[in-house]
Design a protein around this nucleic acid. Sequence first.
DNA 1: CCACCGATCTGCT
DNA 2: GCAGATCGGTGGA
Length: 200
Amino acid sequence: MDYINQPTEDIARKLLGKILIHQTPTHSYSGYIVETEAYIGVEDMACHSYAGRRTPRLESMYKIGGTIYIYTMHTHQMLNIVTKKVGDPQAVLIRAIEPLGGIEWMERNRKTKGVTICNGPGKLTKAMEITKALDGNVINGTSLFITDGKKPLQIEESARIGIPNKEEWTSKPLRYYVKGHPFVSGMKKGEMDLKGELWK
DNA sequence: CCACCGATCTGCT
DNA sequence: GCAGATCGGTGGA
């Protein structure tokens, strides 16, 4: 997977279906990525690095594509994969996964069962024990990995979640998800495809 | 030092 | 669909 020499939007699409793996000393967690969002850097009003903003907290975004960037808000950790070259602060936010391995431990970490264990950016990091300790490391370099998985049958686009008052950036279709997948955040029952026709 | 503000989540309408 | 909870990062004084 090339995290440097292609547009962030393309990387966000291609991450759908890939397998995210977190190996802790005691557990192995994994799941298919089913929802992502692209953040396009200094021109993107919704991006943390908008207008070249640079603070200690954002430093990882300025590193090489493939770097892990983890942002904390409202006590939740959010997992991003940095894209592009050094000094071009763009990233893809991983918003939801379909659990594959370590499901019982995910349920224990989240104290619940079913789709709510990881159908949102804060939920999946809690489920997989992903913490700020990984911030600044490179994907596939330490304990967090992304490997090839499946291909979505159909990719749906929409505006990003939770981005009000950012002019045209509020409505740009920079959110991508596997059409009909039950683990996508906010998925309504009527929009779910329960016949399993989600992947190629 | 202190006030402001979310790339959220949950629960209720 | 919307309000409230909740708290660390950030920037101004």
